[in-house]
Design a protein around this nucleic acid. Structure first.
Lengths: 150, 150
DNA sequence: GGAATGAGTTGGAATGATTCCAATTTGCAA
DNA sequence: TTGCAAATTGGAATCATTCCAACTCATTCC
């Protein structure tokens, strides 16, 4: 069962939505809370299941809507690997992803600014990139599980 | 209309297939030729259309099969952006991709070995990656179109 | 107060890429 | 020539996602 948002998180949600002219709704609160509660890069279906524990009437379409809204106002990032279901991640710090082929788990990998800088520098003149996405694929010796409340 | 493979390319195809115990077939030749003829990161559907010009009876399922086979034996790479259709690319040199949001075109970006090295180095202990994928998203001032026969 | 407005939500239908499958076809090898 | 195994084929099935029309609910306006 998902706990409610902290003051701080609720404010964050409220402000981010407000700047793109949108409102906080019970559904959005729950979906956001779900994302913050367990940062394991859940799929839409995962979020749907977890959110339903707190709000049984919630519909899948709404989860899609909420997540799209959050991505739109910069609250969360989408993570895609190959053509698997899209996953969502509330970690806004620049980071890469590591996809463990054995478990399917996705780990955040911190991305030092120098690297980002040097990556930008390999773009030929005339190429302006807003986004860089870096993903590793391989095996990891699963360290301590990372799931945190924020 | 697609030209036939050069000696060299046919040999390459034949060898790569052979090492994973598979054979050259007319369909595979055509599909491979299509990939080499225009290196614009075609989707399966694109390949299907182009290949059909030379082999009208070719089926979509076969195109999927051929491409999967090629990926399996390392002849071509898959390129995914967000959840769009998978694209295919016969450029085996390590490179990143730049996806032009205006046109949808995908460009290869050369990837200096130092960068790959420094990327590998940011992985924490216990993470072994076989593959690194880097994709830029943004706008480019479309330079000379890159489509080549190989 | 009560109707009109509009954003947000909902369930189900529609879409689109990909995979699956059972029936053929093909090229060899016995 | 017979038989096999690999490839190919067309169509059905799957699955994530999008679309849509009806509904809810809070707010604004008379």
């Amino acid at each position: 069962m998902i706990q409610k948002l902290t003051e701080h998180d609720r404010e964050n949600l409220q402000e981010s939505l407000a700047t793109s002219g949108q409102k906080v709704t019970p559904q959005r609160e729950i979906v956001f809370a779900v994302l913050l509660a367990k940062r394991d890069h859940p799929t839409v279906e995962d979020v749907f299941q977890r959110a339903r524990e707190s709000m049984p009437g919630l519909s899948l379409a709404t989860v899609y809507n909420c997540l799209e809204t959050f991505v739109g106002c910069g609250l969360v990032r989408q993570v895609n690997h190959e053509r698997e279901s899209t996953r969502y991640c509330p970690n806004l710090a620049p980071h890469a992803h590591f996809r463990d082929e054995a478990t399917g788990h996705v780990h955040d990998i911190e991305l030092p600014p120098e690297i980002i800088q040097s990556l930008r520098s390999i773009l030929p003149a005339g190429f302006n990139s807003e986004t860089i996405e870096i993903s590793f694929r391989g095996r990891s010796q699963e360290t301590a599980p990372r799931s945190t409340s924020n």
